[in-house]
Computed example of a mutant assay.
Amino acid sequence: MGQQLEAVILDWAGTVVDFGSFAPTQIFVDAFKTAYDFELTLAEARRPMGLGKWQHIEALGRDPEVGARWQAQFGRTMSHEDVDALYHRFVPLQVERVGQHGELIPGALATLQTLRARGLKIGSTTGYPRAVMHRLMEVAAAQGYVPDCTVCADDLPAGARPGPWMALDNVQQLAIGAVAHCVKVDDTLPGLHEGRNAGMWTVGLALSGSPCGWTLDEYLAAGELERDAVRQRVAAEFAPARPHYVVDTVAALPAVLEDIEARLAAGDRP
């Protein structure tokens, strides 16, 4: 069977690094507290995960529970200026701490080596702004992960997820011949929408990312019944994006790529 796939485009936190995607979520909690003395829970902070961080804060302001508490505390809805103030508090906190959560997810490096051995290009997109990614890319590179392309949430004038623009910028930078020969891998609903909207194959990660919310130790300690319950819950959350595949972690990606190659050879397209 001749290879048709050209590239895999990976998300960062919760996909390749930072099992459970704790770096961004905890910083949202801290930014709301330090900037406005507003209490935000970790579960609430996770709800818009996958969006660009400015849009993430904006979405939290529109969240029915968070928005109601904001209205009660300040007597008004969250304004554009509030979002700006929270974002400018978030970014330096995230730059400061992102390296603390930069460890590669188990199995990621072996998967990346498999992709390279197959001759695939490796792209990436992220909801992080470029200022944060400078630091995270250094941490990842020290562990052996250097993608061919990284597009950040604030790089493009068109915006970030759930639109297709970051994924399609990877296509352009990597000189990909057809979007149907690309696979977008993500642990969030907006990231899966990004891949779908770009016309790519999409793979959702059920257990390593933000929707699951487990630490690595919690994942390792969980029994199969507990894991299966979370798989079903996360798959239901992913359903609006209609991912082509949902697997536990990026370690399962090589087998998925084999199946996609077979489908492409049979004439299937995303």
Rank of each mutant, 00 (worst) to 15 (best):
A153F: 04
T202H: 01
L205I: 09
H181V: 06
A160E: 04
Y128H: 05
L156T: 06
G209C: 06
N197W: 10
D155L: 03
V98K: 02
V183T: 01
A206T: 07
A180V: 02
V139G: 10
M166W: 05
T202R: 03
G127V: 10
G119D: 12
R130T: 11
T111S: 07
R130P: 06
L156P: 09
V98C: 03
L156E: 00
T188A: 08
A117Q: 09
V151C: 02
C182L: 09
R196D: 11
T150L: 15
C149K: 11
A206V: 04
C182H: 03
P190D: 10
H181P: 05
D148M: 00
Q94L: 05
L109E: 01
T188Q: 08
Q143V: 06
M133F: 04
G213S: 13
P157D: 08
G159N: 02
G107L: 05
Q100C: 04
G195Q: 14
N197Y: 14
A160W: 13
R130G: 07
S208P: 13
P211Y: 06
D186N: 12
T111V: 12
H101M: 03
D148P: 07
G127I: 04
G123S: 14
L174P: 07
Q113D: 15
P129R: 05
A142N: 14
I122A: 12
A110Q: 08
